[in-house]
Design a protein around this nucleic acid. Structure first.
Length: 364
DNA sequence: TCCGTGACGGTTGAA
DNA sequence: AATTCAACCGTCACG
């Protein structure tokens, strides 16, 4: 599983099969789209398959999040202790109650919602296996040793909890990364939704220090850490598009807000591009961005007070390598298509005048 | 030419 | 510890 060397797609872009694109790329996709760049152009520019671009944009439009879903793991159990307890109560109250009636009552009583209510067969199994003998103590009420993680709430958001929230442990790979502790409030208490919508929006991501910090970004294998991990690093950021559960941003991440005033320190990192990796997307952002001058996101979805001042991540900043859609298009039409990275194609002289208002003509 | 979509091969992590 | 399973991923090809 050496991810140091990804595969190369038809567009010349590097990807790691089975793994999500780096967040920086995902952000750039959304950013460019909001600048009016057509998906096909984004696809070519970032060398990401148009199917992927389409998927990411569709997801973003639907959920407001650019983050990939949590990979792996199993669905959380719906037969939480509380559910079992209620089922038992129902059964005790009416020994002749049918499983489907129990199911209805779980819904009516708000114990479950339609997303996590157990199936009739599950209820039957519970009745048979766990409540068959009501005189026996309920295993869940007995502080049994069987670990049980993260009881589900009835909120759809929690219908499929983030795996990392389920079993936080000192060695949890997801729980924390390289000195970046994961807020319990974020990972555990709130619980990232495994299902979309995610709690993260692009606006949040814009504040991720990790975008500029290679040590925080690159996993031990040189590839960017899991998206789920990145999620834990997102900084609270004023959002003009608070689509999702912005309130869940971890307190600990506030410290990353400093990146907005320390841009130059992050610029060269160009996070997602460990040597030989994602060269297409990455490279030294400083070489084609004007440090100190912020790229101004103009689209409503991205514009916020900090965007111009910070545009904090080198990777993301690189998304703003074109201060306007027009520049982007011009550069693109000016003779790209050669398999060189963006650095070669878009020298620094193309990126002055950073406050220029993009003219998202986008369309051809 | 653009773009939505499904198949495919792959990764991941809980059970 | 190894396996299974079901979630996810991005690419590719088709319409």
């Amino acid at each position: 599983m050496d991810q140091s060397y990804g595969e190369v797609n038809q567009l010349g872009g590097v990807f790691v099969n089975g793994r999500p694109l780096p967040n920086g790329i995902r952000i750039r996709i959304v950013e460019l789209a909001q600048l009016g760049i057509r998906p096909c152009d984004i696809s070519r520019q970032l060398r990401v398959s148009h199917g992927c671009v389409s998927k990411i944009l569709a997801r973003y439009h639907e959920t407001g999040s650019i983050l990939p879903g949590a990979i792996g793991g199993s669905k959380p159990r719906v037969t939480t202790p509380n559910v079992v307890k209620n089922i038992r109560d129902y059964k005790q109250g009416d020994p002749g109650i049918f499983a489907w009636e129990i199911r209805d009552r779980l819904l009516v009583d708000g114990v479950c919602d339609k997303y996590n209510v157990p199936s009739v067969s599950s209820i039957s199994r519970i009745l048979r296996n766990k409540i068959g003998n009501l005189s026996q103590p309920n295993q869940y009420e007995n502080n049994n040793n069987k670990p049980y993680h993260a009881p589900l709430s009835c909120s759809p958001i929690h219908a499929y909890s983030y795996p990392g929230a389920l079993a936080p442990s000192p060695g949890n790979k997801i729980g924390g990364v390289a000195g970046v502790p994961v807020s319990a409030a974020h990972m555990g208490h709130v619980g990232l939704s495994r299902a979309w919508p995610s709690v993260h929006t692009v606006s949040n991501i814009l504040g991720i220090r990790a975008f500029m910090d290679p040590s925080a970004l690159s996993g031990p294998d040189g590839y960017a850490p899991k998206m789920e991990e990145w999620a834990s690093r997102a900084a609270t950021f004023p959002s003009a598009r608070a689509v999702n559960v912005e309130k869940t941003m971890p307190d600990a991440d506030v410290k990353y807000a400093q990146c907005s005033s320390n841009l130059s320190g992050y610029v060269p990192a160009c996070a997602y591009s460990p040597p030989g990796q994602y060269g297409v997307y990455g490279g030294a952002a400083a070489s084609y961005m004007s440090a100190g001058a912020g790229w101004q996101a103009q689209s409503p979805g991205f514009t916020h007070a900090h965007a111009a001042a910070s545009s904090p991540c080198g990777e993301f900043q690189s998304a703003g390598q074109f201060q306007s859609a027009g520049q982007f298009k011009a550069a693109q039409r000016a003779g790209d298509r050669k398999p060189a990275g963006v650095l070669g194609r878009y020298p620094p002289e193309h990126v002055t005048g950073l406050q220029h208002r993009p003219s998202p003509t986008g369309a051809s």
